[in-house]
Design a protein around this nucleic acid. Structure first.
Length: 294
DNA sequence: CTATTAATAT
DNA sequence: CATATTAATA
Protein backbone atom coordinates (compact mmCIF):
# COMPACT_ATOMS: atom_id res chain seq x y z
CA UNK A 1 0.00 0.00 0.00
CA UNK A 2 2.04 2.73 -0.99
CA UNK A 3 -0.03 5.60 -1.67
CA UNK A 4 2.04 8.52 -1.50
CA UNK A 5 5.53 8.43 -2.33
CA UNK A 6 7.09 11.52 -2.89
CA UNK A 7 5.02 14.39 -2.77
CA UNK A 8 1.65 14.08 -3.78
CA UNK A 9 -1.28 15.00 -1.99
CA UNK A 10 -4.34 13.61 -3.33
CA UNK A 11 -6.15 16.75 -3.71
CA UNK A 12 -3.39 18.92 -2.75
CA UNK A 13 -1.81 19.87 -5.86
CA UNK A 14 1.32 21.73 -5.62
CA UNK A 15 0.31 24.84 -7.25
CA UNK A 16 3.83 25.45 -6.58
CA UNK A 17 5.01 28.79 -7.35
CA UNK A 18 3.76 29.17 -10.76
CA UNK A 19 0.24 30.11 -10.95
CA UNK A 20 1.08 33.39 -12.26
CA UNK A 21 -1.37 34.38 -14.77
CA UNK A 22 -2.30 31.22 -16.32
CA UNK A 23 -5.72 30.39 -15.44
CA UNK A 24 -6.62 30.86 -11.99
CA UNK A 25 -9.85 32.50 -12.52
CA UNK A 26 -12.24 29.78 -12.09
CA UNK A 27 -15.35 31.71 -11.55
CA UNK A 28 -17.23 28.58 -11.87
CA UNK A 29 -15.70 27.20 -8.83
CA UNK A 30 -15.65 30.42 -7.07
CA UNK A 31 -17.60 30.40 -4.01
CA UNK A 32 -18.59 33.20 -1.84
CA UNK A 33 -16.48 32.74 1.12
CA UNK A 34 -18.69 34.54 3.39
CA UNK A 35 -21.67 33.02 1.95
CA UNK A 36 -22.93 29.72 2.75
CA UNK A 37 -20.08 27.57 2.06
CA UNK A 38 -21.54 24.66 3.72
CA UNK A 39 -25.04 23.74 3.84
CA UNK A 40 -26.81 24.94 6.88
CA UNK A 41 -27.54 21.43 7.78
CA UNK A 42 -23.94 20.71 8.05
CA UNK A 43 -23.41 23.83 10.00
CA UNK A 44 -26.08 22.85 12.37
CA UNK A 45 -24.64 19.47 12.58
CA UNK A 46 -21.49 21.01 13.75
CA UNK A 47 -23.28 23.30 15.99
CA UNK A 48 -21.72 26.22 14.40
CA UNK A 49 -23.35 29.28 13.22
CA UNK A 50 -23.18 30.10 9.64
CA UNK A 51 -22.28 33.59 10.31
CA UNK A 52 -18.85 34.41 9.32
CA UNK A 53 -18.89 37.35 11.56
CA UNK A 54 -17.67 35.97 14.73
CA UNK A 55 -16.14 39.21 15.54
CA UNK A 56 -15.11 39.75 19.03
CA UNK A 57 -17.00 42.50 20.62
CA UNK A 58 -14.59 43.51 23.22
CA UNK A 59 -13.12 46.27 21.33
CA UNK A 60 -14.30 49.64 22.29
CA UNK A 61 -10.96 51.06 22.49
CA UNK A 62 -10.25 53.37 25.18
CA UNK A 63 -6.83 53.76 23.85
CA UNK A 64 -8.00 55.44 20.81
CA UNK A 65 -5.26 57.60 19.59
CA UNK A 66 -6.24 60.71 18.04
CA UNK A 67 -5.02 60.55 14.65
CA UNK A 68 -6.75 58.29 12.44
CA UNK A 69 -9.32 58.89 9.98
CA UNK A 70 -9.36 55.36 9.08
CA UNK A 71 -12.79 54.12 8.92
CA UNK A 72 -13.31 51.47 11.41
CA UNK A 73 -12.13 48.64 9.43
CA UNK A 74 -14.61 46.04 8.57
CA UNK A 75 -12.13 43.76 10.01
CA UNK A 76 -12.60 40.53 8.40
CA UNK A 77 -13.04 37.89 10.94
CA UNK A 78 -10.66 35.17 11.27
CA UNK A 79 -11.18 31.93 12.81
CA UNK A 80 -12.92 31.23 15.88
CA UNK A 81 -11.39 29.10 18.43
CA UNK A 82 -14.20 26.95 19.43
CA UNK A 83 -13.61 24.78 22.35
CA UNK A 84 -14.98 21.86 20.65
CA UNK A 85 -12.26 19.67 19.57
CA UNK A 86 -12.67 16.78 17.35
CA UNK A 87 -10.18 14.14 17.55
CA UNK A 88 -9.44 12.51 14.37
CA UNK A 89 -6.05 13.08 13.08
CA UNK A 90 -6.01 10.52 10.51
CA UNK A 91 -6.08 7.55 12.51
CA UNK A 92 -4.15 8.44 15.40
CA UNK A 93 -5.75 8.22 18.63
CA UNK A 94 -5.31 6.59 21.42
CA UNK A 95 -6.37 5.79 24.25
CA UNK A 96 -4.23 6.76 26.59
CA UNK A 97 -3.49 10.05 27.23
CA UNK A 98 -2.37 11.82 24.40
CA UNK A 99 -3.37 15.23 23.53
CA UNK A 100 -5.28 16.55 26.38
CA UNK A 101 -8.29 18.30 25.16
CA UNK A 102 -7.41 21.18 27.32
CA UNK A 103 -4.13 22.72 27.05
CA UNK A 104 -4.38 23.25 23.42
CA UNK A 105 -1.21 24.49 22.15
CA UNK A 106 -1.10 26.46 19.03
CA UNK A 107 0.67 24.59 16.32
CA UNK A 108 1.76 27.39 14.23
CA UNK A 109 0.52 30.55 12.78
CA UNK A 110 0.77 31.40 9.18
CA UNK A 111 0.89 35.03 8.37
CA UNK A 112 -0.70 35.51 5.10
CA UNK A 113 -0.05 38.57 3.00
CA UNK A 114 -3.50 39.75 3.57
CA UNK A 115 -3.18 39.32 7.21
CA UNK A 116 0.09 41.10 7.05
CA UNK A 117 -1.51 43.88 5.19
CA UNK A 118 -3.99 44.17 7.95
CA UNK A 119 -1.18 44.27 10.35
CA UNK A 120 0.59 46.97 8.45
CA UNK A 121 -2.61 48.81 8.02
CA UNK A 122 -3.23 48.83 11.69
CA UNK A 123 0.27 49.95 12.43
CA UNK A 124 0.06 52.61 9.83
CA UNK A 125 -3.05 54.00 11.26
CA UNK A 126 -1.91 53.75 14.74
CA UNK A 127 1.39 55.32 14.13
CA UNK A 128 4.66 54.11 15.37
CA UNK A 129 3.87 55.75 18.59
CA UNK A 130 0.98 53.58 19.29
CA UNK A 131 2.16 50.80 17.20
CA UNK A 132 2.38 48.46 20.04
CA UNK A 133 1.46 44.86 19.86
CA UNK A 134 -1.45 45.26 22.10
CA UNK A 135 -3.00 48.10 20.23
CA UNK A 136 -2.29 46.52 16.96
CA UNK A 137 -3.82 43.33 18.03
CA UNK A 138 -6.86 45.11 19.22
CA UNK A 139 -7.16 47.18 16.18
CA UNK A 140 -6.84 44.18 14.04
CA UNK A 141 -9.52 42.41 15.87
CA UNK A 142 -8.49 39.24 14.36
CA UNK A 143 -10.00 36.48 16.20
CA UNK A 144 -7.48 33.95 17.15
CA UNK A 145 -4.66 36.32 16.93
CA UNK A 146 -2.85 36.94 20.10
CA UNK A 147 -0.54 39.57 21.28
CA UNK A 148 2.37 37.24 21.10
CA UNK A 149 1.79 36.69 17.48
CA UNK A 150 1.55 40.32 16.75
CA UNK A 151 4.56 41.10 18.83
CA UNK A 152 6.62 38.60 17.00
CA UNK A 153 5.50 39.82 13.70
CA UNK A 154 5.92 43.39 14.69
CA UNK A 155 9.45 42.70 15.55
CA UNK A 156 10.13 41.28 12.19
CA UNK A 157 8.33 44.08 10.56
CA UNK A 158 10.54 46.58 12.27
CA UNK A 159 13.60 44.75 11.24
CA UNK A 160 12.42 44.75 7.74
CA UNK A 161 11.91 48.46 7.79
CA UNK A 162 15.27 48.93 9.26
CA UNK A 163 16.81 46.97 6.56
CA UNK A 164 15.15 48.97 3.92
CA UNK A 165 16.10 52.16 5.58
CA UNK A 166 19.68 51.25 5.96
CA UNK A 167 19.88 49.97 2.51
CA UNK A 168 18.89 53.05 0.76
CA UNK A 169 20.77 55.49 2.80
CA UNK A 170 21.17 58.72 1.16
CA UNK A 171 21.90 57.55 -2.23
CA UNK A 172 18.97 55.85 -3.41
CA UNK A 173 18.21 56.14 -6.88
CA UNK A 174 17.58 52.84 -8.13
CA UNK A 175 14.51 52.36 -6.25
CA UNK A 176 11.59 53.06 -8.32
CA UNK A 177 8.37 52.08 -6.96
CA UNK A 178 8.95 52.31 -3.37
CA UNK A 179 9.37 48.95 -1.96
CA UNK A 180 10.97 47.56 -4.99
CA UNK A 181 13.78 45.91 -3.28
CA UNK A 182 14.73 44.24 -6.41
CA UNK A 183 15.92 40.91 -5.37
CA UNK A 184 13.21 38.50 -4.93
CA UNK A 185 15.35 36.41 -2.81
CA UNK A 186 16.82 39.03 -0.65
CA UNK A 187 13.86 39.69 1.40
CA UNK A 188 11.57 36.92 1.86
CA UNK A 189 9.28 37.80 4.53
CA UNK A 190 8.35 41.36 4.38
CA UNK A 191 9.92 41.92 1.16
CA UNK A 192 7.10 43.42 -0.48
CA UNK A 193 3.81 43.87 0.98
CA UNK A 194 2.07 47.09 1.12
CA UNK A 195 4.33 49.08 3.20
CA UNK A 196 3.08 52.50 3.82
CA UNK A 197 5.90 54.74 2.99
CA UNK A 198 5.33 56.64 6.10
CA UNK A 199 7.42 54.30 7.97
CA UNK A 200 10.13 54.29 5.49
CA UNK A 201 10.35 57.96 5.39
CA UNK A 202 14.03 58.21 5.47
CA UNK A 203 14.00 61.85 5.87
CA UNK A 204 11.32 63.84 7.37
CA UNK A 205 12.69 67.09 8.51
CA UNK A 206 10.44 69.57 10.00
CA UNK A 207 7.38 68.28 11.48
CA UNK A 208 7.29 64.86 12.73
CA UNK A 209 3.85 64.03 11.85
CA UNK A 210 3.40 61.36 9.46
CA UNK A 211 0.83 62.57 7.26
CA UNK A 212 -1.71 61.21 5.28
CA UNK A 213 -0.72 58.17 3.79
CA UNK A 214 -2.77 56.85 1.07
CA UNK A 215 -6.34 56.46 1.79
CA UNK A 216 -6.05 52.90 2.50
CA UNK A 217 -9.30 52.94 4.15
CA UNK A 218 -10.69 51.86 0.96
CA UNK A 219 -12.00 48.75 2.41
CA UNK A 220 -15.14 47.33 1.32
CA UNK A 221 -17.80 48.51 3.55
CA UNK A 222 -20.51 46.47 2.15
CA UNK A 223 -21.62 43.85 4.44
CA UNK A 224 -20.92 41.13 2.07
CA UNK A 225 -17.32 40.60 1.85
CA UNK A 226 -15.77 40.93 -1.44
CA UNK A 227 -14.88 37.45 -1.88
CA UNK A 228 -16.21 36.18 -5.05
CA UNK A 229 -16.47 39.51 -6.52
CA UNK A 230 -13.26 40.45 -7.89
CA UNK A 231 -11.31 38.30 -9.99
CA UNK A 232 -11.43 35.37 -8.11
CA UNK A 233 -10.50 33.68 -5.26
CA UNK A 234 -8.12 31.05 -5.91
CA UNK A 235 -8.70 28.75 -3.16
CA UNK A 236 -5.35 27.49 -3.73
CA UNK A 237 -3.31 30.14 -2.21
CA UNK A 238 -0.46 28.05 -1.19
CA UNK A 239 1.83 29.16 1.47
CA UNK A 240 4.21 30.84 -0.75
CA UNK A 241 6.35 33.57 0.45
CA UNK A 242 4.10 35.63 2.48
CA UNK A 243 5.09 38.69 0.77
CA UNK A 244 6.20 37.93 -2.64
CA UNK A 245 6.45 40.46 -5.26
CA UNK A 246 3.20 42.05 -5.81
CA UNK A 247 4.34 42.90 -9.20
CA UNK A 248 3.88 39.51 -10.55
CA UNK A 249 1.97 37.66 -8.02
CA UNK A 250 -0.61 40.24 -7.75
CA UNK A 251 -2.96 38.00 -9.48
CA UNK A 252 -4.79 36.36 -6.72
CA UNK A 253 -4.50 37.48 -3.25
CA UNK A 254 -7.04 36.26 -0.97
CA UNK A 255 -5.99 35.55 2.37
CA UNK A 256 -5.67 32.55 4.24
CA UNK A 257 -5.23 32.75 7.79
CA UNK A 258 -4.00 29.70 9.24
CA UNK A 259 -4.00 28.90 12.77
CA UNK A 260 -3.87 25.88 14.75
CA UNK A 261 -7.44 25.84 15.34
CA UNK A 262 -8.21 23.06 17.60
CA UNK A 263 -11.59 22.94 16.18
CA UNK A 264 -13.11 22.78 12.84
CA UNK A 265 -15.14 25.66 11.86
CA UNK A 266 -17.20 25.89 8.86
CA UNK A 267 -14.48 27.65 7.14
CA UNK A 268 -12.08 25.13 8.30
CA UNK A 269 -14.18 22.52 6.82
CA UNK A 270 -13.63 23.66 3.37
CA UNK A 271 -10.35 24.97 4.30
CA UNK A 272 -9.02 21.63 5.03
CA UNK A 273 -10.29 20.55 1.77
CA UNK A 274 -8.74 23.38 -0.07
CA UNK A 275 -5.74 24.15 1.89
CA UNK A 276 -4.00 21.70 3.93
CA UNK A 277 -0.35 21.72 4.13
CA UNK A 278 1.24 18.68 5.43
CA UNK A 279 4.44 19.27 7.05
CA UNK A 280 7.05 16.69 7.37
CA UNK A 281 5.65 13.86 9.17
CA UNK A 282 2.39 14.51 10.73
CA UNK A 283 2.19 18.16 11.34
CA UNK A 284 -0.59 19.90 9.70
CA UNK A 285 -1.40 23.39 9.06
CA UNK A 286 -4.74 24.62 8.16
CA UNK A 287 -5.42 27.69 6.25
CA UNK A 288 -8.50 29.69 6.54
CA UNK A 289 -9.95 32.12 4.19
CA UNK A 290 -11.19 35.20 5.75
CA UNK A 291 -11.80 38.08 3.63
CA UNK A 292 -9.41 40.71 2.85
CA UNK A 293 -9.23 43.79 0.97
CA UNK A 294 -6.89 44.64 -1.61
C1' DC B 1 20.54 20.56 4.74
C1' DT B 2 19.67 25.35 4.44
C1' DA B 3 16.70 29.26 4.79
C1' DT B 4 12.91 31.60 6.62
C1' DT B 5 9.14 32.37 9.81
C1' DA B 6 6.90 31.97 13.98
C1' DA B 7 6.93 30.99 18.95
C1' DT B 8 9.03 31.42 23.05
C1' DA B 9 12.15 33.13 26.64
C1' DT B 10 14.70 36.85 28.67
C1' DC C 1 7.20 46.28 25.42
C1' DA C 2 11.44 45.03 23.03
C1' DT C 3 14.97 41.94 22.12
C1' DA C 4 17.19 37.52 21.71
C1' DT C 5 17.01 32.87 21.22
C1' DT C 6 15.06 28.53 20.00
C1' DA C 7 11.87 25.58 17.27
C1' DA C 8 9.37 24.47 13.44
C1' DT C 9 8.43 24.53 8.61
C1' DA C 10 9.17 25.29 3.75
Amino acid sequence: MKESDDSNNNNNIRWSSKWEEDELPSPDELMPLSQSLITPDLALAFDISTNLTLQTPPLPPPPRPSVHHLSQPPLPPLIDPQPSDFADSSGELGSGGDEPARTLKRPRLVWTPQLHKRFVDAVAHLGIKNAVPKTIMQLMSVDGLTRENVASHLQKYRLYLKRVQGLSTGGCGANGGGAGAGDPVTDHLFASSPVPPHFLHPVRPSSDHYLPFVPVAALQQHHQMAAAHTRLQPPFQRPLAQFEHPFLSRAGQQPGYSVGAPVHSQAQLYAEDLNMAHANGGRKVLTLFPSGDD
